[in-house]
Design a protein around this nucleic acid. Sequence first.
DNA 1: ATCTTTGCAAAACCTTTGCACTGCG
DNA 2: CGCAGTGCAAAGGTTTTGCAAAGAT
Lengths: 130, 130
Amino acid sequence: MERTTAQRKAIHTVLEKSGRPLSPPEIFQEARHMAPGLGMATVYRTIKRLIDDQAIAQVGLPGEAPRYERAGMQHHHHFRCTSCHRVFDWFGCACPCEGNAPNGFEVQGHEIYLFGRCDECVARTRTTVS
Amino acid sequence: MERTTAQRKAIHTVLEKSGRPLSPPEIFQEARHMAPGLGMATVYRTIKRLIDDQAIAQVGLPGEAPRYERAGMQHHHHFRCTSCHRVFDWFGCACPCEGNAPNGFEVQGHEIYLFGRCDECVARTRTTVS
DNA sequence: ATCTTTGCAAAACCTTTGCACTGCG
DNA sequence: CGCAGTGCAAAGGTTTTGCAAAGAT
């Protein structure tokens, strides 16, 4: 039977409240504020369970370690700023990918990642260079 | 100055000739045929250098370890079969992603991954279930 | 002969697992 | 109380690094 513990609640809350996908170390650091003495192993074990429970989802950015964000969000993808390296949610997906599948292939889903510079970094450059 | 060695040639050849992205262990195993005694460290060191030289490119599938393929291919993305787990090149990108960027964001590039079943797996199921 | 590149082994990471203890129910 | 959940430390994997030896030019 599933038990409610301070650690699990802390980890879940951190992911619920974060507006962006977090890595295990980031989750660890944040959750520690709410659950002192928390161990890294518990973070990994809890992540696994939350995924099984469909409470969170894995976000695997190309070439990077997986991050995690709360599940149940509307269809979206991600934008990584090549300047500040932050990852943003992106809801502008209008990709007709499914239609262009190779012959005989059956597309079940897709992932899109945009790379570029976020609004803040674009603005910073403008004023700095001018 | 850059030197031509059997190991480097072997690794480069393996990636040139492969029609799909390879992981370091796959490269290691293949290149060993051409360069006996090859060490894993050399594979990693050579991959890094080939990327710097723009001879190969990293292919980071979401949630998986990076693979590598030769650079300079025409614009394409990847399709991973959820049944046989192979990764295929996909040239049907007609994604208008760049246009839908969030306000103030500057898109420099994009990556797309399709998931589904490849032609062989689709055919296999048909004949098996029928 | 010089100086890059290599193989090996050790180190540095990250993630998982074993186990005795904690604490929820 | 009983057993799921935890922390710690050890184990597993993968990638990187140090260093003496090999080899290309």
